[in-house]
């Protein structure tokens, strides 16, 4: 299996490293000139090109690690060439784009695998497995928190709502997908967002309450408002017969983190824990397996689309100050 990785930024590099743990070979990197893509290609003995079309004939899979607003375009081009697609989360900037991507891949008879990597983080996966097998009864109240600092890339597409969808679509979407994976479909979303820095319309701290069809409720916190170099994730799942808690850093009576001593050079931080295999490698091994033997991966394109729908509902709720209802199929009513 030969892969083209589109996008040579942070996630392009992370995926390249992860692919090296599979039987697949990276044939090419696709990126913009002068952004370090040729060096990355050198590391993996792959070609570097600036146009996907130049390598499409030479690969089986296109792995899209670009900024979010480019996911749809590259997916449609790959599907048109009958290539399987792996796409970073969120699947798309909008629900409409995501739907078109799914339809195009279905028509072309190729797979569309969305990299909701949280489903491959062992602590999250174990908690979901234990919940699914009934160890804590029915999940009832979930709390999911993901707090880090504002991305500081030179071309800072993360904080541009036109390119990333903003913090809720880029960051909170991880926990949205996880809440849905654990507690089922979401029928109502209410969210509030604050902006502690940056330009207007760049909400960087948001709280959302999700109501699941089965009666569970979820509290989501997403933040780009923490001082660098923090990346803290916490979660708990309270069920009818027990509680699973991932408390994050050792709790103290009082913790305070002030801005000012910008304590790292990281542009963007990823959560890390010492493991024999990174969750990104676990994810790509699962995707490689799905593509080579036709099995279903633990996250579908429809899951990715549902997460975008809920994130969009949260953004809309925060803007309008009202809850947003999602109908039975997870679609918004007309």
């Amino acid at each position: 299996m030969r892969v083209a990785i589109v996008g040579t930024g942070l996630m392009g590099g992370v995926h390249a490293e992860a692919w090296s743990h599979t039987g697949a070979r990276i044939a090419a990197f696709v990126g913009t000139a002068g952004a370090g893509g040729d060096a990355l290609a050198g590391t993996y003995a792959a070609r570097f090109v600036t146009d996907l079309d130049a390598v499409l004939a030479d690969v089986d899979v296109v792995d899209i690690c670009t900024p979010t607003h480019l996911h749809a375009e590259f997916t449609l081009r790959a599907a048109a060439a009958a290539k399987h697609v792996i796409c970073e989360k969120p699947i798309a900037l909008t629900v409409g784009e995501g739907r078109r991507m799914i339809a195009a891949c279905r028509t072309a008879g190729v797979r569309l695998l969305v990299a909701h990597v949280l489903r491959f983080f062992p602590e999250y996966r174990l908690a979901r497995e234990m919940t699914a097998r009934g160890d804590i009864g029915a999940p009832a109240v979930l709390r999911l928190s993901r707090c880090t600092f504002r991305p500081r890339k030179t071309d800072n597409w993360y904080v541009d709502p036109e390119r990333s969808g903003g913090m809720m679509l880029d960051l909170m979407v991880h926990d949205i997908d996880y809440a849905r994976w654990v507690a089922g479909d979401v029928v109502r979303v209410f969210a509030k967002a604050a902006q502690t820095s940056g330009r207007p319309d760049e909400a960087d701290h948001a709280l959302a309450i999700l109501t699941h069809r089965g009666g569970a409720i979820s509290h989501l916190e997403g933040s780009w408002a923490y001082p660098p170099p923090i990346f803290q994730t916490r979660f708990e799942i309270a069920g009818s017969a027990g509680l699973i808690e991932f408390p994050g850093p050792a709790p103290a009576a009082i913790e305070m983190h002030l801005r000012g001593g910008e304590g790292s050079n990281h542009e963007v931080q990823l959560p890390r824990s010492p493991l024999h295999e990174s969750p990104y490698a676990t994810q790509l091994r699962a995707f490689h397996e799905a593509l080579t033997s036709g099995t279903d991966p633990p996250v579908s394109a429809e899951d990715g689309l549902a997460a975008v729908r809920i994130a969009r509902a949260a953004i809309e709720s925060a803007r309008r100050g009202q809850p947003v209802e999602l109908d039975a199929s997870g679609e918004k009513p007309p």
Partner: peptide, 27 residues
């Protein structure tokens, strides 16, 4: 949401997001 086996009766926490930083108290 604290089961009978929880190591205490429960707890009370407040996280504050401010202009100059963040703070969390676990009473």
């Amino acid at each position: 949401s604290r089961p009978a086996s929880y190591p205490a009766w429960g707890g009370l926490t407040v996280e504050l997001i401010g202009q100059h930083g963040v703070m969390r108290v676990d009473a």
